[in-house]
Design a protein around this nucleic acid. Structure first.
Length: 498
RNA sequence: GGGUGGGUAGCUCAGCUGGCAGAGCAUGGGACUUUUAAUCCCAGGGCCGCGGGUUCGACCCCCGCCCCACUCACCA
């Protein structure tokens, strides 16, 4: 067909075709195409509809002597096209066969008809190349199977996999519905710094970089919390942010270093108000984004509409390990109880770990993996929550809740600590942990403390891992499956190219 | 970081006891006016992840390294 291209690679062959096109006066990369319908819209047009102009990527092609069928694909769907000697003329058909390849972007004009096998199809009487492809697409039947390739070349995964397209469209829809629910409830969307001279709001190690002009090291935020609370001080009494956060720590199916966290803060609410709101938020978003308030995970049906079990740390740990943490108020006593119950806490530095750290690790070890249905966990030790308000009646615990689904924390929320003097004392405590070598302990943020000293109303805040939430609703076990371009080590070829 | 599995053509995958590197899709040539994993005939395409070693001979065995997935540990 294309004389003189025998033995060349696909890439070289296609480049040769581009040269031929240019010689023929055809621009292989034109600047626009007038489209009348998306492909999904075209599919529902009645037979005989004339003047249909659609476009997309040609993803399959079946050529015969005087007739060819293929499918165009766009984000809405696919539609079959037919190009023939009858509809495009002998010359037009020959040029189609010689110059158009699978993978090309193509615009066609024609009318709708139904084939013998009943498929609605565009009978093309004119076509235009809209973007020449130089590489062959992955195998049409299996698509991209290599997980590494799917992540490195997500665009190919998206071209080849309907399931992948649906997954990322779901993510967009979830974010849209969350935003719309918050807007409906008068929350104001804001953007706070990603590059910070102080980091806080969570216990995690940050990424550090350098600001050349100011000649200071700066951190990528690990959470937006203290900035959002400064805004409450400033009078924005309901704020939220979809915050890209960065934590320089290990990766796992549930952890990625560059992730998205939704945080919102509402003045005049306590954590109970927040829990009621959160339930409404999640049920509404689920219903609107997925059409149901259930999802399925590892063969289990997760029913969000059922009443969520509310359980304290103390009761939950007692239930799963037999240990009553309040009967063991010192770490020595608690460690002894663990040994007696046969709970092995490897990698816990028994000398350095505080009582609260032990509690947390007993919970993660014995309880969290078994919390499959949505569970509201309350009664966290105050020491685990340096920015949370202590309970008025039980000052050793925090007014805080977490929502755990499928063994994963989805939501973390509390009544915020708004007392600047108490906050200073707690951050000083954290600073002592830092000095003792705990890299994840929070920094003492004078600027934040000063903001608090101007006065804060009652506040309740909320944080949710968007990637985890989406993965849950998409039935994915690895959050990388719902991140378009997860960070990976660069390939050799791309490092050499520099 | 530890453990397990994987890396072979652009893609999806075979590859026997260590004995010439294979198929399908894709690509090039030919036939074909209702195909849809089109079909039929022919052809081209390989740093078997990288580097050592053992061997007459290594995709295969041994050692080291790189990348990916899962898993354990820390973190959401």
């Amino acid at each position: 067909m294309n004389e003189g291209t025998k033995g060349l690679s696909v890439f070289e062959t296609r480049k040769a075709i581009i040269e031929m096109l240019r010689e023929e006066g055809v621009n292989p990369y034109p600047d626009r195409f007038e489209r009348t319908h998306t492909l999904e819209e075209a599919r529902s047009l009645p037979e005989g509809t004339p003047g249909v102009r659609v476009c997309g990527r040609l993803i399959s092609l079946r050529k015969m002597g005087k007739l060819a069928f293929g499918h165009l694909q766009d984000i809405s769907g696919k539609v079959q096209i037919s190009v023939s000697v009858d509809s495009c003329g002998a010359e037009g058909f020959e040029r189609f066969k010689k110059r158009i390849d699978i993978g090309d972007f193509l615009g066609v004009a024609g009318s709708m008809f139904r084939t013998r096998t009943g498929e609605i199809t565009v009978a093309v009487n004119d076509y235009q190349l809209l973007g020449k492809s130089l590489r062959s697409l992955p195998e049409k039947w299996h698509g991209l199977q290599d997980v590494e390739l799917c992540q490195r070349k997500r665009y190919l995964d998206l071209i080849m996999s309907e399931e992948t397209r649906r997954r990322f469209l779901l993510r967009s829809r979830i974010v849209r519905e969350i935003r719309s629910f918050l807007e409906l409830h008068r929350f104001i969307e804001v953007e706070t710094p990603v590059l910070c001279s102080q980091y806080g709001g969570a216990n995690a190690r940050p990424f550090i970089t350098h600001h050349n002009t100011l000649d200071i090291d700066v951190y990528l935020r690990i959470a937006p919390e203290t900035y959002l609370k400064r805004l409450i001080v400033g009078g924005f009494d309901r704020v939220y942010e979809f915050a890209r956060c960065f934590r320089n720590e290990g990766s796992s199916p549930a952890h990625i270093q560059d992730f998205t966290m939704l945080e919102f803060y509402a003045a005049y609410w306590n954590y109970r108000d927040n829990l009621n709101f959160t339930r409404e938020l999640l049920l509404t978003v689920l219903e609107k984004a997925t059409g149901t308030t259930q999802c399925s995970f590892q063969g289990e049906t997760i029913r969000f509409e059922n009443p969520w079990r509310i359980v304290t740390f103390q009761d939950l740990i007692r239930e799963h390990s037999g240990i009553d943490i309040l009967e063991h108020p010192t770490k020595e006593s608690l460690l002894k109880a663990c040994n007696k119950s046969g709970i092995v806490l490897e990698d816990i530095d028994a000398d350095r770990a505080a009582w609260a750290t032990l509690v947390d690790s007993i919970y993660k070890k014995t309880c969290r993996p078994r919390l499959i249905q949505p569970t509201v966990l309350i009664g966290h030790p105050r020491a685990l929550s340096p920015l949370a308000r202590a309970n008025d009646n039980h000052p050793e615990i925090a007014d805080r809740f977490q929502i755990v689904v499928c063994g994963t924390e989805i939501v973390n929320a509390y009544s915020e600590l708004v007392d600047p003097i108490d906050q200073r004392a707690r951050l000083e405590e954290q600073a002592r942990h830092r000095a003792a070598g705990d890299e994840e302990a929070m920094m003492l943020d004078e600027d934040y403390l000063e903001a608090m000293e101007y006065g804060m109303p009652p506040i309740s805040g909320f944080g949710m891992g968007i990637d985890r939430f989406v993965a849950l609703l998409a039935g994915e076990e690895n959050i990388r499956s719902v991140v378009l371009f997860p960070l990976m080590r660069p390939e050799e070829s791309s490092t050499n190219a520099v």
